[in-house]
């Protein structure tokens, strides 16, 4: 109990949000290799997936003489014809490519602990190998918690919606308050899960202790929410800029230039993720100091 109190006191003197953010920024700037790794894996996976999806469409369009038209603008008639012709092939590709979902989830579980480990000055791959399976368990546990949050929010707002009759009420409940509550709930679970992984890797906790510590951290120490919100805001900004480049300027930019700009945003997003883990490491080092030195 004393160590816990001391740990909490440690956080209290951290100047929480700002200090954590500084550590996060340092992590993102200092570990560009991690940023590159995180970005590259996501990009390669996505590129491969996209290439395989586009292939049947490209085959149908290439000789049609409409390829430049469809490349530059949206044409409902041509897209409808294209999907009628190749929709089946695209669907079957999607089914064949469903492996990307478990692979990306496994990668997420391994990479998150790998990054946490690496940010402590150790090897990313060793961290991923050592903590990966437990990180996976935590991922599944908190995924269930996410589902529970969604179910609770849906039930709660169904009840509220039933009380709040009328179009205006229903609109606000189902299009604003409900999604906002679900998003908030999922964000809290995200912080819990990531803090749990930090407790696992940095604090050396067992899986269940780490899960409990993660939940406790998100509930008791709101200071961790500040860097999370900053990172979420930065990530959202980069996403918005990417979509803006996609939607507002169709045809105005050469495809390769647009894609390069968007991938720049993806690199920055990866940096934000690494930064967020940097914040978590700082947080975990303060609140869960290891009693046993790491063997790495």
């Amino acid at each position: 109990m004393d160590s816990v109190r001391a740990a909490h006191a440690g956080v209290a003197v951290l100047t929480p949000g700002r200090t954590l953010l500084v550590r996060g920024l340092q992590a993102a700037r200092g570990r560009l290799g991690l940023v590159a790794l995180l970005y590259s894996v996501g990009a390669l996976l996505s590129l491969a997936f996209a290439g395989l999806l586009v292939k049947p469409l490209q085959e149908a369009v290439a000789a049609s003489s409409y390829a430049p038209t469809l490349a530059e603008s949206f044409d409902l008639a041509l897209w409808a014809d294209l999907l009628e012709l190749r929709g089946g092939a695209v669907r079957s590709q999607l089914i064949h490519l469903a492996w990307i979902i478990p692979v990306s989830l496994l990668w997420k579980a391994a990479a998150s602990v790998g990054i946490l480990h690496a940010l402590q000055g150790h090897s990313f791959w060793q961290g991923a190998a050592r903590y990966g399976p437990r990180s996976l368990l935590l991922g599944m546990l908190f995924f269930c918690l996410s589902l529970l949050v969604v179910v609770v929010v849906v039930l709660l707002f169904a009840l509220i919606g039933a009380q709040w009759e009328g179009e205006i009420g229903r609109t606000w409940v189902w299009f604003f308050f409900g999604p906002a509550a679900a998003a908030f709930g999922l964000a809290v679970v995200t912080v819990m899960r990531d803090a749990a992984r930090a407790a696992l890797v940095v604090g050396g906790r067992s899986t269940l202790d780490a899960a409990a510590a993660g939940i406790s951290a998100a509930v008791r120490h709101r200071s961790i929410g500040i860097p999370f919100l900053v990172c979420l805001g930065a990530g959202s900004l980069f996403a918005a800029l990417s979509l803006l480049a996609e939607l507002v300027t169709p045809g105005a930019l050469p495809a390769i230039v647009r894609f390069a700009a968007q991938q720049g945003m993806q690199v920055l997003t990866a940096a934000v993720i690494v930064g967020w883990y940097g914040c978590l490491v700082a947080y975990a080092e303060a609140i869960w100091p290891r009693s046993v030195p790491s063997s790495d």
Binding site: A43, A63, L70, S242, F259, Q266
Partner: peptide, 19 residues
Amino acid sequence: HSRAFGLRHTFKFTLWIQY
């Protein structure tokens, strides 16, 4: 055969899948 469509949409889908 034009590669314009394939290139543009591979890029576009890549971004969507990344997100």
